[in-house]
Nucleic acid binder design. Sequence first.
DNA 1: TTAAAAATCCGTATAAATACGGATAAAAAT
DNA 2: ATTTTTATCCGTATTTATACGGATTTTTAA
Lengths: 211, 211
Amino acid sequence: MKTIKLVIADDHELFRNGLKELLKKYDDVDVVNLVEDGEEFMNYIDINQDIDIVLLDITMPNMDGFEVLDKIKTVNPRIKPIIISMHDEGNYIAKCAKKGAYSYLLKNTDQEELIKVVRIVNEGRKYFSHSISEKMINYMSENPVSDNILSNKETEVLELISKGHTTKKIAEMLYVSARTIETHRANVLKKLKAKNTAELIKKAVKLKLIT
Amino acid sequence: MKTIKLVIADDHELFRNGLKELLKKYDDVDVVNLVEDGEEFMNYIDINQDIDIVLLDITMPNMDGFEVLDKIKTVNPRIKPIIISMHDEGNYIAKCAKKGAYSYLLKNTDQEELIKVVRIVNEGRKYFSHSISEKMINYMSENPVSDNILSNKETEVLELISKGHTTKKIAEMLYVSARTIETHRANVLKKLKAKNTAELIKKAVKLKLIT
DNA sequence: TTAAAAATCCGTATAAATACGGATAAAAAT
DNA sequence: ATTTTTATCCGTATTTATACGGATTTTTAA
C-alpha cells in the first residue's frame, strides 16, 4: 500500500509536533516534514515535489495559508491542501474554498475526522463538513460581493478612518476634496453593509481589511 | 521519584491530544486528564484534587482560562496553572499574571521550553520568559489603567455602539436618557484614549473588549 | 461607616457624519 | 474598442457625535 505523504505547516510548534505524534499511529500516513510558515513550505516543495497533502494553517508569519493556496496551484497542483484553522468565520472558509483548498478543518476536529478527511482528500476528492459548508453559505448569501470588496483608495481611506482621522483631515492628507472622501466613506459603508462608522470599523477589523 | 500530575484544558481536540502525546516521553510527567473547557476542568478537580499543574488555554467555551484562574485560587490553590495561549498581547499576559498564573507560554513554544517550565512551576516557582515579561511591561506602561478598564455598563454600551446603534437607540434599549449614554460614550473614549468612534472601536476590538 | 467608584442626568455649542441625488474623467477589464 | 469600475467632485439637509463644564444618587470597597 502506498503511504500518504503529508506535510504540516503551522507556526505553533507544540501543535505541529503534537499533530505529528497523533498521525504516527496511522500506517497509511507518513508525515514527511514540518514547517513553520508558508515560505518554508514553498521552499521545501521546490525540491521535494513528491507530496500528497499539506495540512495548512492560515495564520502564519512570512507567508500565510491564503498565499500558499494561491501559489501551490501553479507550482505543484498535485499537492492537495487541507486547511486546519481555528477560525470558523464564513469569510475565511469561503476564501479558502475559492482558492482551491480540498478541505477546511477546525482545530477542535477529532482525530477520526482528521484521518477520514486526509484519506478522502488523498483520493482527489474535496470534503467540507456540513457545519463548515453551512457557515460558508451563510456568509456568501449575506455578503454577495465576497472578497476583494474594496478598491485601493477605499482601503486607504478606511485605514485612515480607523486611525481616528476625520473626513476633512483625510482629504488634506490625500490632497483631494472632502467630498471625495465622503463618497469613499459612503461607498465603503454600503459595501460592508454597515449602518455607521462604528459598525464599519468592527466589520473591517473582523474581515481583516485593516490592520 | 514523584511524577508531576498534569491536566490539559484546551478546546482544540487536536492540540490537546497532540500535546498529550508529546508529554508521554517525559517520565516525570503524567497527563492524568484532558478537558475541553474550564467548566469541565472545575468539575474534574472537584473530585480529583491531587493535581500539580494545569496547562490552561485562555479562549475556551463555557468557562475561559481567566475565570478558571479566578476560581482555582479558592477551590484548590495547590494546583499551579500554566497558561498556554496563542495570544501574545500584553493585556492578556498582564491579566493572567495578576490572576495568579505561574507561567504564560505561547503555542509556538518548543517542547524543551515547555518541559522546563513545567518542572520549574512544579517546584512552586513562577516563570515568565523574557519576551513575555517584556510585552507585559510595555503594555502596563502604555496603559496605566491596565485591566478592567471599563465598567460593566460601559462595556455594555460599547458593545451596542460597535453594533452600529446610535446613542439615542441605545438609550431606548437600556431605558435611560440619551445623556447617560453620551456620558458613558465620552468616558469610554477617554479611557481608551481614542479621538472618535472609529478609533475607539478599533482599539476595543484589538483589546478584545468587545466580541 | 465612610470614601470611592459607577450610573444616572442636564445645558449649550460646534463639528462631524449620514442621506438623498446627482456628474465627469480616467483607468481597468472584457 | 467598448463597457465597467474607480476616483474625483458638488448641493442641501438632517442626524449624530464630540467638547466644554457641571450635578445627584446608588453601589461597591476599604
